[in-house]
Structures are given as C-alpha cells and as structure tokens.
Simulated assay, not measured.
Amino acid sequence: MHVRPRQRGIPPLSSMSRRAALCAALSITVVLGGCTSMGANLPPLPSEPAGPYRLGAGDQVRVTVFNDPRLTGDFRVSDTGSVALPLVGLVPVQGRTTEQAARQIEETLSSRGLFNDPSVALEVLTYRPVFVLGMVERGGQTPYQPGMTVLSAVAVVGGFNYRAVTDYVGLTRIGEDGQAHEYRAERSALLQPGDVVNVFERRF
C-alpha cells in the first residue's frame, strides 16, 4: 500500500484565521485613511492672471454723473447684482469692471432720454468681505483689501488655533459660471472679494 508523504510548509488558514487576517488588513486601511488630512484631495486653486476687479453683490460704490448731482452718490451692489440709481432704477453691474459698469450706466441714461451725452465715473469704496471659517480663533467675515492672502486673512481673525491644518486651506470661490467651486489653496494664495476660507481640523 502506497502512502503519500506528508507535505511540509505553511498549513492552510482556517476560516477563523482568514477572517482575522482580513480584519487586520481592513484596520490598517482605516488607520492609513485617517492619516490623510481633510481637504488634501481637493483640486488646487487655479492660477489666474491678474486682471481688473469685477463688481459683485455687497460692494459699495460711488457713482458720479457729471453735471447732475441728483444721480451722484454712494450705492451698494444688491444681492441681484444691480445698483438702484435715482430717476433710473436698477442697473445691472454684476461681473463688470468699474469701467464697464460706468459705460452701462451711461447707456441706460441715454436710453431713458435723461441725457444726450452722459459722462459717468464709478469707483469702489468698500469691497465685499472675505469669510474665514473653521479652526481659527475668531471665525467670521473681514473686509477685503487688495493683495490680501490666505495667511493675512487668517491673521485678521486671530490666527490658526492649535487644532488647525496650517499648510493649506479650503477655498470656495464663485466662478465665471456663477457656481461655487471649492479648491485647496496654499497660505500665500491671493484672495478675491467674496471668497470663503475654510481652515481644516487636524486628524492627529
């Protein structure tokens, strides 16, 4: 009678051993996943060439209509993106430069028959604010200043707190399509009025 020799090597895993190995692998995956900082997978903030400022809701502007003080004054861009001028009504300025907005007002004055050849100037008095949320000492809004960066905006609201991710932030910005888009932005990234900065919490 022929007897097969006993095979040497690693014995097969029992069902319980296989389950234990699977649980260990899953645990490692969860731990490694937890080490990934919040917001790290967001797309990077695209670099945009410097260009003229474009008006948006919340901006305070001064409109000067030369030779007619009745139409000259300070106005706020409404939530609908318009300024309400005396004798004229609503004039849309959302997304326009100050020069384009001034020309739009001139066209409106001409079309209403108020002036034959109006001359208008428009300047920004106060920009709409930037909002800073998350792991900072005092979250909230802060007035935008030209040249403001992520780091300077965080500094205005008291700086990062001890639980903050300090290398980058989440930044939500309204795109040209009118929709909000969220990006990962470095500390040195330049802000735009209306941006929302979200400082993430460290996992460990």
Rank of each mutant, 00 (worst) to 15 (best):
6 R>M: 12
66 F>M: 12
5 P>Y: 01
154 V>N: 00
80 T>V: 15
123 E>V: 15
187 R>W: 05
83 V>A: 02
36 T>H: 14
21 A>I: 09
13 L>I: 11
10 I>T: 13
189 A>S: 10
63 V>M: 10
63 V>Y: 10
47 S>Y: 08
183 Y>Q: 00
76 R>T: 15
25 A>M: 13
85 L>R: 08
12 P>E: 03
52 P>G: 04
6 R>P: 05
53 Y>V: 09
107 E>H: 13
20 A>G: 03
49 P>S: 08
183 Y>R: 00
74 D>H: 05
48 E>Y: 08
202 R>F: 03
68 D>S: 10
78 S>T: 15
194 G>A: 00
120 V>E: 00
195 D>G: 03
48 E>P: 04
173 R>I: 01
178 G>T: 07
119 S>M: 04
195 D>E: 01
109 L>S: 10
130 V>D: 02
68 D>L: 09
109 L>C: 12
166 T>Q: 13
190 L>I: 00
182 E>F: 14
36 T>V: 15
22 L>S: 10
18 R>E: 11
24 A>H: 03
198 N>S: 04
69 P>L: 15
175 G>D: 10
110 S>F: 04
157 V>A: 05
149 T>L: 07
81 G>H: 07
19 R>T: 04
124 V>Y: 02
62 R>G: 00
114 L>K: 03
139 G>A: 15
43 P>A: 10
